[in-house]
Simulated assay, not measured.
Amino acid sequence: MVSSGSLASLALPALAFLSLSANALPHHRTASSTAALKLAVRINSYGIKNIAAADQARVQALQAGDSSSISATNAMTTYTANIGVGSPATYYTLLIDTGSSNTWIGANKSYEKTSTSEDTGNQFTLTLSSDLVIENQSIGVASESNLSVTDVDGLLGLGPVDLTQGTVSDEDEVATVTQNLYTQGTISSEVLGVFFAPASSDDTSGELTFGGYDASKITGDVSYVPITSASPARTYWGIDQSISYGSTIILEETAGIVDTGTTLILIASDAFDRYQSATGGTLDEETGLLKISSDQYEQLSSLYFTIGGVTYELTPNAQIWPRSLNSAIGGTTDDIYLIVSSTGSSSGSGLDFMNGYCFLERFYSVYDTTNSRVGFATTEYTFATTN
């Protein structure tokens, strides 16, 4: 899944005005249109030593309200989009991240100035692809970066606009990609739909839908929940939820976030202790994940996430890391690893869980700025047994 760039190690000397485009639908649209952007999935086997530790570092930064210092160097499963900057467009491969809101380039491929670029010394503009164009999209140019995911040039920030506050000199906020599509009339609602197929499935694809969601990707209705009022989760795509293992509640209703930049499902340490006890898993030092035997897997119960009065079932198969990818995380081929891990802090932090990629590959998600809510729906992969 996608993880955000480490802005702490980025120099952002200039932002400029370019244009944003993405391979989607025809260029001219009415305000009622939606626009789809296909994603590519990559399995990053470089530098991964402990994916649980990498995710824990991310949640601890977010709990501290510091979305600008999150590392992308240990992202395991990454979804990327091919984004063009300028006219004629120069294309860059960007990670998709709902946990941050700034868009930037320059990690592996240097920014190339074009005829529509304007170096303001303060901000700059972008292109999603040739058919989906955003004018005057502000993006950052990195002069250096510790982003080490192979062949990735930067980040496409899809979080709430409030996360951009204080990130650019002389600017209160920087308009996000989704916000600009809305204000420029390309889409009628400031809404983003996100679809991921499991990495272990035959269809390892993803798709962003701007302005709504793709009904062909879901098997039921979208159910919505308001953005949480708890801090710091409310700054992100934060929601309230409770979690049960079988019929036993392991996490009472509390606040956390939905995040494409997190690989695992992270829960507060006290809830994780209950989960470990219930599953009988033992901590594997190489991967940082709980490991269970084949017999324990046969006895595994479903996890139930109750969000806004609706319960979403994460089956036993959805709770394990794809066995075909065990070697990519330093695991043993025939072992079984659980994808639920600890945030590293007890509940009550105001950000007690992170529903990462391993949750989002089983449920379609919708991020609705217009109505301050997040939605979920089942997909054909919700009950898949491909792991």
Rank of each mutant, 00 (worst) to 15 (best):
F305Q: 14
T167H: 05
A16T: 03
L156W: 00
T90I: 13
A81W: 09
S145E: 11
Y312S: 06
A53G: 07
T30V: 05
P26G: 06
G261A: 14
S231G: 08
E313P: 05
L208Q: 15
T114D: 00
S349Y: 03
T90Y: 06
N180A: 07
E135C: 00
T282C: 05
I329P: 00
S138L: 04
I307F: 15
G193T: 15
S200D: 13
G106S: 02
F196T: 14
D170V: 10
D273E: 09
T186H: 08
L155Y: 07
S33P: 11
T127A: 10
L10E: 11
T120F: 09
P88M: 02
R373A: 04
V133G: 01
S148Q: 04
S327R: 14
L303A: 03
D131M: 11
I96W: 01
V85H: 08
Y46T: 13
H28Y: 02
D172P: 02
Y213H: 08
G211A: 11
T176Y: 08
L15P: 01
L163M: 13
V2M: 00
P322S: 13
D352F: 06
L7C: 06
S269D: 14
L266I: 08
L10A: 12
E252Y: 10
K49S: 14
D97P: 12
S117G: 10
F195M: 13
A11F: 09
F359C: 04
E253R: 06
G47L: 08
R362H: 14
Y381G: 03
G84F: 04
L351I: 10
A215M: 01
S115A: 02
A36F: 07
Y92I: 00
S247G: 01
S169G: 12
S216V: 09
Y312D: 08
S33T: 12
S216C: 06
N180D: 15
N82M: 10
I307D: 11
G348I: 05
D334L: 07
A89P: 10
S145Q: 07
V133P: 00
Q319T: 04
S32W: 07
S148D: 05
S365Q: 02
V310G: 03
G356E: 08
I96P: 04
D335L: 06
G166M: 01
S229G: 10
Q184M: 11
T260F: 07
A142E: 10
T176H: 11
T30P: 06
G280Y: 04
F305T: 07
D172R: 07
S200E: 10
L94I: 13
L300E: 14
R29L: 09
D162Q: 01
Q179T: 14
T167G: 01
P13S: 05
I257G: 12
G157E: 03
R42V: 01
G375S: 14
I96C: 00
S269T: 09
S169V: 06
T98L: 02
T164R: 02
S205W: 04
G288S: 00
R234N: 13
T176E: 01
S33N: 14
T178Y: 01
E361C: 08
N136E: 08
A53I: 02
Y236R: 01
N136Q: 05
T90M: 06
G99C: 11
G356P: 03
E118T: 15
D335R: 10
R274A: 12
E253L: 03
